[in-house]
Design a protein around this nucleic acid. Structure first.
Length: 639
DNA sequence: CTAGGGTTAG
């Protein structure tokens, strides 16, 4: 009887009752009383996702030249993928091709996908090339693989090959290939393709489109895609909110968040994470606390908790941040890095470094960004020796090559110590091209140590890279004027005029009673502006009594370029400080956020106010934090 | 069988 089936390679879809009656038990493995039982066993194990037993049974099948139904194999492949069982997956592949079998094409597609999930792109490609027929799923699997592996060129190439093959792309194809776009040209072409195939309203496609436009900084286009249809999908909302939050348009991100809630959607993890980022960008501590209430529901979400921790760090709520950090049940590199950087930026460098030691003890491996934070802490505290130690041994200790940001910290550290020549030397030794931020760091050191020559040198480099940087033009022209190089100064002003550049007005804001009060230089629209100015004048008079002299000559410091004493007096941060004094209870901290760098005079003013009025003032300017307390600032007068 | 959103940086 066994001879009836000697050449039978595949018994899929063969009625089992027939097998039962014809098969003769021979050489049977354990746990199976006949071939049919063996196949049934195998199938059962596959459906139960019992990987070890399935593989054993599969080996028995192979020994007997038998095959089961394709559906069983698809379950088996899924098991291998979910358990990341690479060796077992390869065995399944071998089994499916054993005895010259030609598996169903969907099984081959699944195998391709399996190799992709195992990060064995080469294997996937080999199998893909050998396939007798490729459908949209097979092509999409490969395209998605290349997109994920950030080999965008290959993904786009495969889309073209697929179209040439006459295969019609679907929404899966598009949402994969969109992420592979390498610029506006390919993105626009793909976007057109969406209309051609009538896929422009698919929510997966739309969220991918929004993300990609946002990635290339095209927020208008991202918003246009978003507004095209009324959105009933939370992920699309999350995409558009994230788009603005990640591109530092926090205002718009918060507006969209409000719109989403009004439209009746409940914020969940990704929504809240983006919203917190927007809140952080605007330094709105009280609003952040309100968001915290919603986060409690997802207190096991690490990403969200990290965003919340960062919010407390960057909004001046450092005590809240410390408390929250100690209470966190789970911490990853980002958690530690966020806290280290938060401490360092707020002027607690020693604490940041000891936290770094603690982090190493817990076995969390520091990454590139952690070390930026550590070096930043060193530079902030003037720890020249420690900084050099970490900088020189980071490769050996943590396996991280020093990058632009690490050099930046070291240039800052040397610059702060007055070793400007060493800083320049290090800048030229960098293993990568210095960027604007690197040059600005050097320029910052020049401002403190009043080195006009290197300042001009770095300013020119900055303007070459960023020809619209108003602050640097003004600074450069001020330096020239101060050195009586009138013609050079005039040329700088002329260039500015030609480029149509105007100084961005200084703007400071403060949260009082859940409202944000913004003060813009020379703007008098605040309802209490008269009271504020009266109080400010009174305060200046009082401070003059104890020796305050408005500093009018910040040639190298005042990037706003205001030289006159009366203009200085009404800088936006001064108005915000006075308003804070007037409207916040005595015990509360005055937290202010400014769009530009704080000027030297306002810095001095804040220190003295903190002393005479016995208040803590925290000002976060464009890049740095200033905690004013008892006549001193956490930045140590270096910024 | 193939596709979507979130966290740390000088």
């Amino acid at each position: 009887m066994n001879l009836l089936f000697p050449k039978l390679k595949s018994i899929e879809r063969f009625p089992l009752f027939l097998l039962r009656s014809y098969l003769v038990p021979a050489n049977l493995p354990q746990n199976a009383t006949s071939y049919s039982n063996l196949i049934e066993e195998f199938t059962k194990f596959c459906y139960e996702r019992d990987l070890p037993r399935s593989i054993n049974a599969m080996k028995c099948l192979e020994n007997h030249g038998l095959m089961a139904d394709s559906v069983a194999y698809s379950e088996l492949i899924k098991s291998c993928i979910s358990k990341k069982a690479i060796e077992e997956g390869k065995l399944v592949h071998k089994h499916l091709l054993s005895n010259g079998n030609q598996p169903k094409s969907f099984l081959l597609s699944m195998l391709v996908n399996m190799y992709v999930k195992f990060n064995l792109l080469g294997e996937a490609e080999k199998l893909f090339d050998k396939m007798p027929e490729r459908n949209v799923v097979t092509w999409t699997t490969m395209i998605s693989a290349y997109s994920n592996a950030k080999i965008g060129r290959k993904a786009l190439e495969f889309l073209i090959l697929m179209l040439r093959d006459g295969v019609i792309p679907n929404m899966y194809t598009f949402s994969s290939v969109l992420r592979a776009c390498d610029g506006m040209l390919s993105l626009r072409q793909i976007h057109c393709g969406l209309f051609k195939y009538g896929l422009e309203s698919d929510v997966f496609v739309r969220s991918a489109l929004i993300d990609v436009y946002a990635k290339w900084g095209e927020l208008d286009n991202a918003l246009a895609v978003f507004e095209e249809f009324v959105t009933g999908d939370l992920v699309v909302w999350n995409s558009i909110i994230g788009a603005f939050a990640q591109n530092s348009d926090s205002d718009e991100a918060l507006n969209l968040f409000k719109r989403m809630k009004r439209a009746g959607f409940a914020a969940e993890q990704a929504t809240l994470t983006s919203t917190l980022r927007a809140v952080t960008g605007l330094s709105l501590l009280e609003l952040g606390r309100q968001v915290h209430v919603h986060v409690v529901k997802y207190d096991q979400d690490l990403i969200l908790n990290n965003a919340l921790l960062d919010m407390y760090c960057k909004c001046g709520g450092l005590d809240d941040a410390r408390l929250f950090f100690t209470q966190m049940k789970e911490r990853d590199v980002i958690t530690w890095s966020t806290m280290i950087i938060g401490l360092a930026q707020n002027g607690f460098s020693k604490e940041a470094l000891s936290l770094f030691e603690k982090m190493k003890q817990t076995g969390t491996k520091p990454n590139y960004i952690t070390i930026v934070g550590v070096l930043f802490a060193c530079s902030h505290a003037g720890l020249l020796e420690e900084g050099w130690y970490y900088f020189q041994s980071m490769k050996k200790l943590f396996g991280v090559d020093p990058g632009r940001e690490h050099y930046g910290c070291m240039i800052d550290l040397l610059g702060r110590a007055g070793k400007l020549d060493d800083a320049v030397k290090l800048l030229h030794e960098m293993n990568c091209e210095p960027d604007v931020v690197t040059w600005r760091t050097l320029l910052g050191a020049c401002k403190i140590h009043k080195n006009a020559e290197i300042a001009i040198y770095s300013a020119k480099k900055i303007l070459k890279l960023e020809p619209d940087d108003v602050g640097t033009y003004i600074l450069l022209s001020n330096i020239y004027e101060n050195s009586q190089r009138w013609e050079d100064a005039m040329n700088v002003r002329k260039t500015m005029k030609e480029r149509g550049l105007r100084k961005e007005p200084g703007c400071s804001w403060i949260e009082v009673d859940k409202r944000i009060h913004a003060f813009i230089f020379r703007d008098t629209s605040h309802p209490q502006i008269d009271d504020i100015i009266r109080e400010l004048n009174r305060l200046v008079l009082k401070l003059r009594g104890i020796g305050y002299i408005p500093e009018t000559n910040f040639i190298l410091q005042d990037v706003e370029g205001e030289q006159k004493e009366d203009s200085l007096q009404y800088h936006s941060e001064k108005l915000a400080i006075v308003f804070g004094l007037m409207s916040l209870p005595r015990e509360s901290v005055i937290r202010i956020r400014k769009n530009l760098r704080i000027c030297g005079d306002c810095h001095l003013f804040a220190k003295l106010v903190a002393k005479t009025e016995k208040r803590i003032i925290v000002i976060r300017d464009q890049v740095r934090y200033h905690h004013f307390q008892d006549g001193k600032c956490s930045c140590g007068d270096y910024w």
